[in-house]
Nucleic acid binder design. Structure first.
Lengths: 216, 216
DNA sequence: TAGATTGTTAATCGATTAACAATC
DNA sequence: TAGATTGTTAATCGATTAACAATC
């Protein structure tokens, strides 16, 4: 990427905000908007204009004084930063409801990730199709991943299998694991990164807020 | 709740960490562990002991000098803070794969939330059952929610319906909306709280990290 | 040119960590 | 009592906001 300062570490506070910029810019783009100022975007997103300018400047000067930001250009830059242009390829491991829900969603396509196949260990499911994706037996995992250059594995299998499966995937050279089991996986110092999803934590934030609302 | 300082605002940094404490404490409890020190917990969780003590002290002195924290007691306190003891009752709106995946998960039960029913607008699904839950027609929503004292609605319906449905729920007096559609809902100054889940943001964090890993 | 808005530095604010007295 | 570990204050660190010169 030819953005500035590729070396110094971007704070995780900034990283967590990037996907939200991506979403808002996409909407602006789809709405046919050509340009946007940090001031106007800040109102839409309920953050300060200062923060937006600071965040973007971690990666480079994407705007123009007196003009603002070109929506299409900025969207492209953010996409680049987030790896959307990399054309990552993913498989889903576990063809239960959650796996199938993910197949049915436009989320991956919008983010430049191509879903390639499903895997399961149930003989009932294996051999079937869902949303144009074939469901393979889990024993075919090694061959499939190597042949198809898969970078990402989505874990939607029972948590009991998660750790073992993650190891297997790391050894296969899969570079990203998106983990929906409620286990916290992590590979320190590995070049396989794990993103743990704790959907229950979100439910807890909701109930916390409901609860503290009530006290007033 | 009889914890200290119920009045002053807890920072959102702390709130976001609470569910993780809840998870770790639960595991300790299930493992039969009686007590834990901030030092040991900090090693398990990869945070500083200082942070743990600070976080817990926002709500009260749950430990004991020279001893540490009683696991069961602390778990109880955290549960209280997070609203787990409130016995919230939830319905799921949208009986697609995502909705059904949630029904099948122990997540709600573990967090003190009782799933009560599913709603959908598809005549094929309405009248059916899934995981002991009845699937009602969406037209029955008003009556059902009032009769059954539902506090939480989980939105797993197509995003096009989300905004309208959220309004409807707010007017029905539902106190919490857990929104899985990719829309950002918010009710300022309402006593209905919305928790937006942006699962795609998590995917983007994964691809960001994969991408920045590659640059090295 | 004048107006607008960025990029960036400096100031502020808040969150994290360190340290230690209190106390079990 | 001695040892351990909390609760809490103070110090540090980092993130956010404000301000403004640069510049389109």
């Amino acid at each position: 990427m030819e953005t500035k300062n590729s070396n110094y570490r971007i704070s995780s506070a900034v990283i967590k905000r990037l996907p939200r910029y991506f979403r808002y810019l996409r909407e602006l783009l789809e709405g046919g908007r050509m340009r946007i100022s940090s001031g106007e975007l800040s109102k839409m997103m309920n953050v300060t204009a200062s923060q937006i300018r600071q965040d973007l400047n971690c990666f480079g000067g994407f705007g123009q004084q007196g003009y603002g930001y070109n929506v299409k250009y900025l969207y492209g830059k953010i996409s680049e930063i987030l790896g959307v242009e990399q054309g990552y390829k993913a498989v889903i491991i576990g063809a239960g409801h959650l796996g199938l829900a993910l197949v049915g969603s436009p989320m991956f396509a919008k983010r430049g990730v191509t879903l390639s196949a499903l895997f399961d260990n149930s003989t009932e499911l294996v051999g079937g199709e869902y949303g144009n994706l074939h469901i393979y037996d889990i024993s075919e995992l090694e061959a499939y991943i190597k042949e198809n250059g898969i970078n990402i594995a989505v874990l939607t299998l029972p948590r009991a299998y998660a750790k073992e499966m993650a190891e297997r995937l790391k050894n296969l050279g899969v570079k990203g694991i998106w983990n929906f089991t409620n286990i916290e996986l992590n590979f320190e110092d590995s070049d396989t990164v794990v993103q743990n999803v704790h959907i229950g934590d979100s439910l807890m934030q909701l109930t916390y807020r409901m609860n503290s609302n009530e006290e007033k």
